[in-house]
Design a protein around this nucleic acid. Sequence first.
DNA 1: GCGTCCAGGTCTACC
DNA 2: GGTAGACCTGGACGC
Length: 301
Amino acid sequence: LGTFTIPTPAGFHFRNTVYSHGWCGLAPFSVIDAPFRLGRTIALRDGRALECSMSGMDDESGLLIACAGRLPAKATREEIAAVVRSMLHFECDLAPFYRMIGKHRGHAWMARRRAGRFLRGATFFEDVVKTILTTNCSWSLTESMNTQLVGCFGVESDLGTRTFPAPASIAEAGEAFLRTRVKLGYRAPYVLEFARRCACGDLDVEAFRSATAPATEIYRALRSIKGVGDYAAGNLLRLLGRFDYLGLDSWCRSKYTELHGNGATVTDRDIERHYAPFESWKGLVMWLDLTRYWYTEKFPL
DNA sequence: GCGTCCAGGTCTACC
DNA sequence: GGTAGACCTGGACGC
């Protein structure tokens, strides 16, 4: 193995970022235990695929990156580090959130545990596709569709693992293949149209990650992608470090009802009202509130 | 074994 | 702007 380290930002918590939501269970991510690591097949600019793993250093000063084979050249190490920083969202500054939530009687744990940083795909393209695959289906079907997609269109590494597919490789697929072989069902035309728009340059999807526009504008732009509705756009905004929308799905509704419903029927407006005081942080407060048990029990996925 | 329901929803047509 | 109906798949559930 070729290993090297990169520094992490202040307040960074590796394990909490890995277990921030379900992405760590979707290929080409994998969680490896003893010692705890996040595996990932990374697509390099030169077309190669490289299997890597990330682990937190004992003194929390940085992240250890281990690459299959010998230590990559400096330029490749820098390329890998940039991908890792983006996947673990190093640039997300949670200090203002911790200052605010640290004073809240019921939610101060979020600051104490340094929760709130989300694991992301290597590209925003990956995040959008995976989010579409979570809509209107069980988690096991999401896993199955994603595994098929990676298996059919990803680039293979020396170890036989595969990268998340690039837009161009999905764009060349036929809708029938995506529908039946990859089992995307009615989502096939959504994913295909999105991949084709990204591949031909009609949509610069990666620009979302550096967008500084107001959240309402980004939300509107995301909603214009076919297959991205209310839930998906809100969820994707969270992965961009914007928390102005709740991104409610049936799991959130049911968990909220369990925690705060007091036996009564809960509407989306009730949930909106409950988290509204947290303003532009409400989407983050809601997610952490609903997933609080993940920090004390075994990660559920 | 078979039918029904619905899950980490979205789109379109219609009012 | 609000809402019914259609849409793929597969696991859970009742019979």
